[in-house]
Design a protein around this nucleic acid. Sequence first.
DNA 1: ATTTGATTTAACCAATTGGTCAAATTTACG
DNA 2: CGTAAATTTGACCAATTGGTTAAATCAAAT
Lengths: 219, 219
Amino acid sequence: MWLNYIVNTYSFMKEHEKNTEQKILDAAEDVFMIKGMSGARMQEIADKAGINKALLHYYYRTKDKLFEKVFEKAFKIFIPKTLGMMSSDKPVIEKIEFFVNNYISLLYKHPFIPSFVLSELNRNPQILVNIFEKNIQFTENDILENFDKQIKTEVEAGILKPVDARNLMVNIIGMCIFPIIGRPVIQGVLFENNKAKYNEFLKQRKEFVKEFIINSIKA
Amino acid sequence: MWLNYIVNTYSFMKEHEKNTEQKILDAAEDVFMIKGMSGARMQEIADKAGINKALLHYYYRTKDKLFEKVFEKAFKIFIPKTLGMMSSDKPVIEKIEFFVNNYISLLYKHPFIPSFVLSELNRNPQILVNIFEKNIQFTENDILENFDKQIKTEVEAGILKPVDARNLMVNIIGMCIFPIIGRPVIQGVLFENNKAKYNEFLKQRKEFVKEFIINSIKA
DNA sequence: ATTTGATTTAACCAATTGGTCAAATTTACG
DNA sequence: CGTAAATTTGACCAATTGGTTAAATCAAAT
């Protein structure tokens, strides 16, 4: 359709109106996210995109290249946003409240990404190195260093108990991410496989986690 | 070798002394754990076990049956032990200290199981239902209910702040498990991909996590 | 209308994969 | 020993998989 180049500019367009490249990427995301790299089939991606398998290879030459695109997109949704949530000049407690709110919302919006990214990364940690090489200057170390100093300042000001920044970060992310990654186990073992109960559980997590952290580190 | 049935009884035996069935199971564990169900190759398992591929199918008829055995073993190492650590009549704080110590040790001993189990479970949650059907009466609900009551008692006794048992469990497990599941990201982003620094980090986690939890829930 | 370049398709291919089978070898046992 | 059962092997197969190719279609500029 010759109108494509106009229509494609807008996000309210429906499936058949998108250009092929985007349709492929969306389909690939769906399939890779659930089946993983080795479980995904090029034919299934083609079917879901409503195109021919040869066309898939016309746009993204190999499975690996397509996978790389999908993985990198998923990875970039999380890591930079995660670190971004930590960089502001709010006091630590407020920063943590902000972080937990936004991070859990992000997880709720993309529930399949964490399991996908972490399991593929466990299977092939080399992917990370490639991403690092491509995106030369990640400022994550500055952010961490900054957070560390801020904590120390507030400890001396008598606002916080002494606490290691890295350990704290791992605690926070672990508490947020585990209910998502471990959904099948949690829903099965803790909630008798009741989907509604699990969702209800998720809804009250934000408040519980925030209170739990603050109780622990407030002086 | 006709001595096999004697030799195999003991655990100090070397690879070539084990019986074929066990050699296969060990090899399958190695391969499935790292490559996952769809990434694993029967040929690789056979090679690693030092046997013929046909022999693999002689002992475990299909890939699915072999996978099921490996998965169930991995799953059973964690879930029952995890719940077991919660069932004692120690006071809550002591119970949590005991749990964190033992759970992190367990994770340290089997670092590939959590990622393997959770990612396969995310890809096919049905597996859980099958396991539940096989092992009819899991007593996890009693244990949870018990833990909940115990907390309420200690809250009324002024020992603990009010805290929901399920949320607390998810927090504890999340904090313990995330450093293992997220190893590539943590090592890469937090520790400049330095293996030694990551290991050092793991070593001090027990103390940090215990203190973090207790600080949070102690009245 | 013709040409040019980008897009799309159907048919095909070589390699891999899970799985089988009949024959050979080894083990257990009378 | 001899023989029956269990174990092990090499050769093989059908299906699947990622990927290719040449031809067809389409959009747009001359």
